[in-house]
Amino acid sequence: MEIIGWIVILLCFVIGFIGLVYPIIPAVLFVFGGFIMYGLFFSFSDLPWWFWAIQSLFVILLFGADAIANAFGVKKFGGSRAGLWGSTVGLIIGPFVIPIIGILIGPFLGAIIAEILFNKSSLKKSVMSGIGSVVGFITSVFTKGIIQVVMVAIFFFTI
């Protein structure tokens, strides 16, 4: 049963890291789920209150990081609220339309299309908004990846 427990825990962590680049998967919830699985399979007493407090703060931070990084990228490159919404829609739809590379093309095209349709922006300004959405996404993935590594490291350090 111990082996099955560790397989489930590690599988949660792996899915969590896959979720960094696949937006449909709530990445941080799978990492947090791995901690809960540890408690269910082994013992919650191995994970003190401060562990849960720190991990809960990281979960809140990671949910906010996505929105902030994407908004920052679009705004930094001259995009508007329409570009932000377009990039978000593109981020969700892109991987389904074009597997793998759609994760970058989706938000890029979404921001461009939204800027042109809703703001009547020039092609140059719309493309800059699209570039900003990709920069925001990559920054978000990198940042969230580091935080998730820290979360898992704290888990292994604690147990």
Rank of each mutant, 00 (worst) to 15 (best):
L109D: 00
I9E: 11
V89T: 10
K125R: 08
I100Y: 07
V97E: 02
G78A: 15
A65W: 01
G39T: 13
S133G: 11
G19E: 00
I103W: 11
L62T: 06
P95L: 08
W49S: 15
L29F: 12
I18F: 01
V127E: 14
L29M: 12
W49E: 15
D46R: 12
I7E: 03
V31I: 15
G102Q: 00
I105K: 01
L62S: 06
R81L: 15
V21P: 03
I25H: 06
W6N: 09
L123A: 10
L84T: 13
G106D: 00
G102Y: 14
G39C: 07
F63A: 10
P99M: 13
T158N: 10
V59L: 14
M128R: 02
N70H: 14
I105T: 11
A114D: 03
I105N: 01
S121R: 08
I68W: 07
V150Q: 11
I68Q: 02
G79H: 05
L11Q: 04
G130D: 12
V74E: 14
K120R: 04
F96A: 11
L84G: 11
V21Y: 07
V89K: 03
L117H: 11
W52A: 04
I93Y: 08
F42P: 10
I3E: 04
F157M: 14
G78K: 13
F17M: 12
I15H: 08
F96H: 13
M1S: 02
I98W: 01
K125M: 11
I25T: 01
I101D: 02
V21N: 02
G5A: 13
L11T: 12
Y22W: 15
A153Y: 11
F32R: 00
G39R: 03
I15W: 11
T143P: 06
K76D: 08
Q55V: 08
L10Q: 07
A69G: 03
A114V: 05
V8A: 00
G106L: 05
I103P: 10
I24C: 01
I101N: 12
G83L: 09
S45H: 13
F96V: 08
V89A: 15
G86S: 14
G33F: 10
P99D: 14
